[in-house]
Every structure is written in structure tokens, then in C-alpha cells.
Amino acid sequence: MKNLKYLLLGTLFGIILCKVQAVSWWRMQEMFRFDGFYMYGLFVTAIPTGILSVWLIKKFNIKTVSGEPIIIRKKKFNWGYVIGGLLFGIGWAFSGACPGPLLALIGAGKFVVIVVFISALFGTLVYSWLRPRLPH
């Protein structure tokens, strides 16, 4: 089954998110209030690791497991990145979680977070519906 590897990688990511406290509502408050370095420490190690990995993939022309060349999709700027970004930021500080941590928290047994998740699905649906009328 070709999707099994993604299930396993997701499991790994979920464990990491919990073990580095990136699912913690408290950590998000601390980060947004600039009271502590912990979350910034995560970002300043994660991003260079990602940059270095992508550089190595290009440098040594590393292929996927099935032998395809690796393609990195370009993101094209639109104003949604700013408007949507601000709105997401507000919600992130309220709920203390972005989509990944939301899922991990549900797994960790924080069942009220299911309501946050359903609300996020509803938000995605409303965006999809309003999309033609929103500035981008």
C-alpha cells in the first residue's frame, strides 16, 4: 500500500510535535508574548535543517524512492498570504494550535480540541465558498 509510508511519517511527526511541546497552548502564548526562546529555538533549528536538506537534494541530484526527480513547487504571491495570514495568526493564538498540533492534541486525548478541528473544517469550507469574492 503506497500511502502507508505517509501514515508512518505522520505518526513520527505527531510524536515529535508532542515531544518538543509544539502542541502546547502555553508555549504559543509564551512565543507570541516574547517571554521565552523555546519556540524560536525550534524554528531556528528546523528551518536551516530544511534548507540544508533541500540544498543537498539538489546538489547530489537525489531522487525519490521510486526514482523520480524531486520537484519543488513554487509559491506565487497573492494578497491572501497577508490577509489570510493575519486571520490565521489571530486564531492560532486563541486556540494555541495550527493544523498539525490540532490533530496531535486530539490523539493525545484532548477531546475538546475536536471542536476546534471541526470549526477549522468549517472555516475552510466558508473560505472555499467565499473565495471568488475575496481579494487575492
Binding site: 509559491k75 497573492n78 491572501g80 498570504y81 497577508v82 490577509i83 489570510g84 495570514g85 493575519l86 486571520l87 490565521f88 495568526g89 489571530i90 486564531g91 492560532w92 486563541f94 486556540s95 494550535a97 495550527c98 493544523p99 490540532l102 475538546v112 471542536v115 476546534v116 478541528f117 471541526i118 470549526s119 477549522a120 473544517l121 468549517f122 472555516g123 475552510t124 469550507l125 466558508v126 473560505y127 472555499s128 475575496l134
Partner: peptide, 17 residues
């Protein structure tokens, strides 16, 4: 905090791509 916060996470992330 819970419902509007969640809504903004879903709406905002998709809007922001």
C-alpha cells in the same frame, strides 16, 4: 477562543495557502 479560533485557523490557512 475555541470555535471562532478554530474557524480562523481553517479560514486563514486556506486563504494564506
Amino acid at each position: 477562543i475555541i470555535v471562532v479560533g478554530g474557524f480562523l485557523v481553517g479560514f486563514g490557512t486556506r486563504y494564506a495557502g
